[in-house]
Design a protein around this nucleic acid. Structure first.
Lengths: 249, 249
DNA sequence: TAGTGGTCTAGACCACAGT
DNA sequence: CTGTGGTCTAGACCACTAC
């Protein structure tokens, strides 16, 4: 046998590159430091730029790198833990939190939401748009779908003079008057659509964690929120228990 | 002005393709149906294969498509909701669940886990490996890290004759004897490493949802589990409240 | 063996940020 | 303007599955 090894499946180059770069990031780079540009890195490793980029994409997805067009590739800080858990079953609102309500529209929600709300397929519901900030950066956008039945005090077609964000506050207050029985969450991977991508300062298709929350009132789903978190920078935390003394620096 | 439009930023081809294909999947394809191969699709849309593949990658990431080398691209079924929530604060175990314990090893855990366990950086801890099945397919692998202090009844260095999976059962039973005070979860995006990828029937680097759970006993972290779920096929559900009557088909 | 998706290349051009 | 990452191309070859 001419070959000294059986070597069934050679590791792909981009995966090996990812490993090498991971180790380099751990040992030789500081957070915020800028890496050499892609063309130089590719040359240095003896691969095509596309292959090098495949490795960088992995690392960006894992939250190790941050790439900005026209600027360069920098070492990303550790992911920020954003709390998504049920601190207490409660309605969304602006109680000192880091959420910021942007405004509201009347829309026919996507099919998945229609199914959760059990409304008519072409029914128009209120939709409050909010943004979540963390450490000065937007980390999530949210669309809170509120069927008209859940907010009867808010007029269907508001006067144009009624500011969109004022109306959003009305809707949230209307929700708070309902007695919340419980909620329900699901997390899945998605890709940022054009609007979300722009708000999150990402390109279309960027990986996001989509958190879908159902709000129950009187045995029915009174509202549904769909929150879109940047998957590269966020770690979603669920505090299932009362806060425990942190023991890890 | 020669141009009739301002047209600031034209949509990337791969993103437009993704939209077109999404609509096509919604209207013209059934679950399980196989799509034309990539070379033909690329020709049909008048783009290079790499561009077409960029769109397919998006759709696979979103759980709309399933691609298998040597076979083809098929329309994926809707994501399966796997429950990850605190049905009741409880230790992991095989109480009729869909978890299957594979065996155990003694390892020095990764830095992130060491930090959570607050053990010495080079300390060896027990690690029970489990796999979660759903609808006949593996959807997650898990490594449950148990410091020796949390399972004093299990010998440090077992006889080789002691089967790995038998020892794993011993470790789980030892945990069950401790009074669990609470738990803690975090979800983030990761990429499947070589071992996990193989167990999940994916390629290295495949997107996964990593669920990190801390188990608290006597005010300290008695164990940490790191579960790796296929991000393309799984939707993680957190039943924060007692089960509510489903109302959406 | 034939056909599929996965990897890799060596280019080109574009959009954007900073000067 | 220059330099960066983002998009796109037209090929080639490889690994795998199924017949």
């Amino acid at each position: 046998m001419g070959t000294t090894q059986l070597e069934k499946a050679p590791e792909p180059k981009y995966w090996h590159l990812r490993t090498v770069l991971t180790d380099a990031l751990d040992s030789e780079f500081a957070v915020g430091e800028v890496l050499p540009n892609e063309r130089e890195l590719a040359a240095r490793f003896g691969v095509a730029r596309a292959t090098l980029r495949q490795a960088l994409e992995q690392l960006e997805l894992e939250g190790r790198l941050q790439r900005r067009r026209g600027v360069g590739t920098t070492v990303a800080p550790p992911r920020v833990g954003v709390d998504v858990g049920p601190v207490r079953d409660s309605w969304p609102g602006p109680p000192g939190g880091d959420w910021q309500t942007e405004g509201c529209e009347d829309v026919t929600p996507p099919a998945a939401v229609v199914q959760l709300l059990a409304t008519a397929p072409d029914a128009v519901v209120h939709a409050v748009r909010r943004t979540r900030m963390s450490q000065g950066q937007p980390v999530a956008t949210e669309l809170l779908y509120i069927p008209a039945a859940s907010a009867p005090s808010v007029p269907e077609a508001p006067a144009d003079t009624d500011s969109s964000s004022v109306r959003a506050e009305h809707l949230l207050r209307a929700l708070h008057r309902l007695e919340l029985e419980g909620q329900d969450r699901a997390v899945e991977l998605g890709s940022a659509h054009t609007d979300d991508a722009r708000q999150l300062d990402r390109l279309p298709g960027a990986p996001v964690l989509v958190v879908t929350t159902r709000y129950f009132v009187a045995g029915r789903t009174a509202a549904v929120s769909v929150s879109t978190y940047r998957a590269d920078t966020c770690r979603l935390t669920f505090g299932d228990t009362e806060p425990v003394t942190l023991m890890a620096g």
